[in-house]
Design a binder for these strands. Structure first.
Length: 274
DNA sequence: CGGGCGGCCTGGAGGC
DNA sequence: TGCCTCCAGGCCGCCC
């Protein structure tokens, strides 16, 4: 579910409640996530360690611990990472649970098991294979028309797939790609070879604005997403095209359309996007 | 090499 | 009510 805004909302909601806390132990109920959970490695990395920082790279949440270990959590499509009282009953699909000091725990629940929980060394973390090929970060100035135009040169294919390619820029998934293209007036099937430089500037600006507005609204909750306190987001009511097939475009009134690109649904307005 | 697609999973929605 | 099919926000690996 979660794209960059949702992970950023999660990070911000967890930070005040996790910083300085000590992880007492970890329980692994099911190791079969996107990659098998290495329970011994996880335990030795986290046990007795204090949380010193919460970061994010692309859609990965990074929980830094003292002693050069970092927890890496990815929510996949259906993951949740929430704080609960230690004695609250284990939920279905709660695969990994971190017992904290002061009587609560951080639990990872993920019905579809596309998510990821692992421990890596903090030193050189971002050079790990999970992050090595990733493009720039949008929230710190990494998403500009310059970046997009440069990445597009010599490439072909539809601009929507291009926006979702983590080697170009990270954090944009199916929802925010649709929304950014709508706001910039770009048709999702348009080839990246046929987009003018000024349009890349506009697209970059609109993509950044969409991500930032979504964060301000607590993310998009269509089905599963919740922040670290279990709160849903509100940005779904602001979505202009995503999941609105057949509804009227708020700008021109035409019925919004749905097509399939690379096996994923794309929503757009044929009147506003060229 | 880059782009496209299937596969990984479960659950919810909708059709009959 | 139940059964069946389809679909879902990410990512990887295989294929052309």
């Amino acid at each position: 579910m979660p794209e960059l805004p949702e992970i950023e909302v999660l990070r911000r909601s967890l930070a005040p409640r996790l910083l300085g806390r000590t992880i007492v132990d970890v329980t692994v109920a099911n190791t079969a996530l996107r990659e098998p959970v290495d329970e011994p490695n996880l335990r030795s990395a986290v046990r007795g360690r204090r949380v010193t920082g919460l970061g994010r790279r692309a859609k990965y949440l990074l929980i830094d611990l003292e002693g050069d270990s970092s927890l890496v959590v990815h929510l996949g499509m259906s993951g949740r990472l929430t704080l609960a009282a230690a004695d609250e009953p284990i939920e279905k699909h709660e695969h990994v649970s971190f017992l904290l000091d002061e009587g609560d725990r951080l639990r990872f629940r993920d019905p579809r098991r596309f998510g990821l929980v692992l421990a890596l060394a903090t030193e050189g973390l971002l050079e790990d294979r999970h992050f090595g090929g990733l493009g720039p970060e949008p929230l710190v100035g990494g998403l500009t028309g310059e970046v997009l135009a440069r990445a597009a040169s010599g490439r072909r294919g539809p601009v929507k797939n291009f926006l979702m390619d983590g080697r170009v820029v990270v954090g944009i998934g199916n929802i925010y790609a649709c929304e950014a293209l709508y706001r910039a007036g770009v048709h999702p099937t348009r080839s990246v070879a046929r987009i003018a430089r000024a349009r890349w500037d506009l697209l970059a600006r609109e993509a950044c604005a969409t991500l930032e507005e979504a964060i301000a609204e607590g993310g998009t909750t269509l089905n599963d997403f919740a922040d670290g306190e279990g709160n849903s987001g509100y940005f779904q009511v602001s979505l202009a095209v995503y999941d609105r097939e057949g509804e009227a475009c708020r700008r021109c009134g035409k019925a919004l359309r749905r097509i399939v690109q690379s096996g994923r649904s794309t929503f757009y307005c044929a009147g506003c996007q060229r």
